[in-house]
């Protein structure tokens, strides 16, 4: 059938002393989508960052992407004092890609406005513009609907659908409902750390350490 676009095996993630989840296996075909759900603090963002290679996993694991990655979270990575179009131009120059379609994102009127004057929803749209401009194969989106109105939500859903139709994989962490037809839904609470103690449902680091020697996070190669 379709080509395997992404595989990851035995992902575990640690924040501070706490193991958030462990033993997570993921596989997605080209055009697939993954929706991470669950309450705050379950490790959705951490998982996204591990998948993006930005955060070392708690134990060595294999994460393989076929193609380039783009990542969007609450920080839009655009220079605050620059006009929006100019801030986006920096990334276009770095990615050697044409400037993103501002009109589609409803940002045409804001092109000359410094980024720091944008509203929450407008900032999100600006972040989406940077994401699209990167022209990466796969997208990792952390709460992409935060601060967006209904129209913006529909726009994000349409953009995701287009990316998937073009063969990209989209991983979305969102506690808000988002239309992702045919997406795998994963609740990280279903992947508790091994040998958790008591009824708490939270694995403490000491439990984990008795289970195996402290894993050495690999240094991020190529980062």
């Amino acid at each position: 059938m379709q080509a395997r676009a992404f595989t990851a095996q035995q992902i575990a993630c640690r924040r501070g002393d706490r193991i958030l989840f462990a033993g997570l296996d993921l596989q997605l075909e080209a055009g697939g989508a993954l929706h991470l759900v669950g309450p705050n603090g379950t490790g959705k963002t951490s998982l996204l960052r591990v998948l993006a290679g930005l955060l070392p996993p708690a134990a060595p694991c294999q994460i393989e992407w076929q193609g380039s990655l783009a990542y969007l979270d609450g920080r839009i990575a655009l220079d605050e004092h620059l006009p929006l179009a100019e801030a986006l131009r920096f990334w276009a120059a770095l990615d050697k890609s044409p400037p993103p379609p501002l009109e589609r994102l409803g940002l045409t009127r804001l092109a000359d406005i410094p980024v720091r004057y944008l509203s929450t929803g407008q900032r999100k749209r600006a972040g989406l513009a940077r994401l699209i401009g990167q022209q990466a194969e796969h997208w990792l989106l952390d709460e992409p609907l935060n601060g967006l109105d209904a129209e913006g939500t529909a726009l994000v859903e349409a953009l995701i659908a287009e990316r998937r139709a073009a063969g990209g994989v989209v991983v979305v962490a969102s506690h808000q409902p988002i239309a992702l037809p045919g997406a795998q839904v994963i609740d990280l609470r279903n992947f508790p750390p091994p040998r958790r103690g008591g009824a708490g449902g939270e694995g403490s680091a000491s439990d984990f350490r008795t289970a195996e020697p402290p894993p050495q996070p690999p240094t991020g190669e190529g980062l």
Binding site: A52, L54, D73, I76, A77, L78, L94, G220
Partner: peptide
């Protein structure tokens, strides 16, 4: 610090631009 707050380093890392 501003670049760290803006998430610029994350975006550079994704593009294979080393710290």
């Amino acid at each position: 610090e501003p670049d760290l707050e803006l998430g610029m380093f994350d975006q550079w890392a994704l593009r294979g631009i080393s710290e």
